[in-house]
Amino acid sequence: MPAKKTFSDEQVVEKIMQLFWQQGYYHTSMDEIVAASGVKKQSLYNALGDKHTLYLKALQRYHQQTLTTCAQNMQQLEQAGESALTVLGMLFSQGLTTEDHPSGDLMANAVAEFGATDTAVQHATTWFYDDYLTLMAAAILKGQASQQITARQSSMTLAQSLLEARIGLQTRLRQGSRPDVEQRKQIWLTFLKA
């Protein structure tokens, strides 16, 4: 009779996600994953898979957590009557200035490590950025409708430019640089203002 599982998959994946986020895929050994998870190696393999599978699960968890937080924050700001520019500013800087997690963005780190060499990782990062882009474009479209945000370009074009600026900031943060995120946000909001 198989042994009863004594751990939560979600909690284990959360710990592993934090480790990959801090160290990257290639600089994280399976022994470090086992130590961080607190689960025996064979149990980890049986329940959640190998290192690559765990990495994909970590990317999926990051995607879910980040987009859920952004959507909730958007809804709260909109319900409070905040402007589309305020919502967009939140989306631009969300998670970049907190000390609660490793520097940068797990997805930006994945792109930097893998580029286009791993189809599954590329799919995960593209899916994440497409969803983030959709949130930004929706905020811009609302701002354009209320004449708060420039309509000289489409909402999608503006959102793509803003997202690329955010990814650049995430990369700089991961490199150990300390760019002034608030200043960059204000520059972009000034640029986007109608």
Rank of each mutant, 00 (worst) to 15 (best):
Pro2Asn: 13
Ala3Asp: 14
Lys4Pro: 04
Thr6Leu: 10
Phe7Glu: 05
Ser8Gln: 05
Ser8Phe: 04
Ser8Pro: 01
Glu10Ile: 03
Glu10Gly: 03
Glu14Thr: 12
Lys15Arg: 12
Met17Lys: 12
Met17Glu: 09
Gln18Arg: 15
Phe20Ala: 12
Trp21Pro: 07
Tyr25Met: 12
Tyr25Ala: 13
Tyr25Lys: 05
Thr28Gln: 07
Thr28Val: 00
Ser29Thr: 13
Ser29Tyr: 04
Met30Thr: 10
Glu32Asn: 13
Glu32Gly: 11
Glu32Arg: 08
Ile33Trp: 06
Val34Gly: 08
Ala35Thr: 11
Ala35Tyr: 04
Lys40Arg: 07
Lys41Phe: 06
Gln42Asp: 14
Gln42Thr: 11
Ala47Gly: 07
Ala47Gln: 07
Gly49Phe: 03
Asp50Trp: 06
Lys51His: 10
Lys51Ile: 07
His52Asn: 05
Thr53Leu: 09
Leu54Met: 09
Leu56Lys: 01
Lys57Gly: 05
Arg61Lys: 03
Arg61Leu: 13
Leu67Tyr: 04
Cys70Met: 15
Ala71Phe: 02
Asn73Val: 14
Gln79Ser: 11
Gln79Gly: 10
Ala80Trp: 00
Gly81Gln: 05
Ala84Leu: 04
Leu85Asp: 08
Thr86Leu: 01
Thr86Cys: 09
Thr86Ser: 15
Leu88Tyr: 01
Leu88Ala: 10
Leu88Gln: 06
Leu88Trp: 02
Gly89Lys: 06
Leu91Ile: 08
Gln94Leu: 14
Thr97Asn: 12
Thr98Ile: 01
Thr98Arg: 09
Glu99Tyr: 05
Asp100Thr: 07
Ser103Asn: 12
Ser103Pro: 08
Gly104Cys: 11
Gly104Leu: 08
Gly104Met: 10
Leu106Met: 09
Ala108Leu: 02
Asn109Cys: 03
Asn109Ser: 12
Ala110Lys: 02
Ala112Ile: 03
Ala112Thr: 04
Phe114Gln: 04
Asp118Ala: 02
Thr119Ala: 04
Thr119Asn: 03
Ala120Lys: 00
Val121Cys: 00
Trp127Ile: 01
Phe128Gln: 00
Tyr129Gly: 10
Tyr132Pro: 08
Leu135Ala: 06
Ala139Tyr: 00
Ala139His: 10
Ala139Met: 11
Ile140Trp: 00
Ile140Leu: 05
Ile140Ser: 15
Ile140Pro: 09
Gly143Cys: 06
Gly143Lys: 14
Gln144Trp: 01
Ala145Asp: 10
Ser146Gly: 03
Gln148Arg: 08
Gln148Phe: 01
Ile149Thr: 14
Gln153Cys: 12
Thr157Leu: 11
Ala159His: 11
Gln160Arg: 14
Ser161Arg: 13
Leu163Tyr: 03
Arg166Lys: 12
Ile167Ala: 13
Leu169Cys: 10
Gln170Asn: 12
Thr171Gln: 13
Arg172Lys: 09
Leu173Met: 08
Leu173Lys: 11
Arg174Ser: 05
Ser177Trp: 01
Ser177Asp: 14
Arg178Thr: 11
Arg178Cys: 10
Asp180Ser: 09
Glu182Asp: 15
Ile187Pro: 10
Trp188Gly: 15
Leu189Asn: 13
Phe191Met: 15
Leu192Gln: 14
Leu192Ala: 12
Leu192Thr: 06
Leu192Gly: 11
Ala194Phe: 09
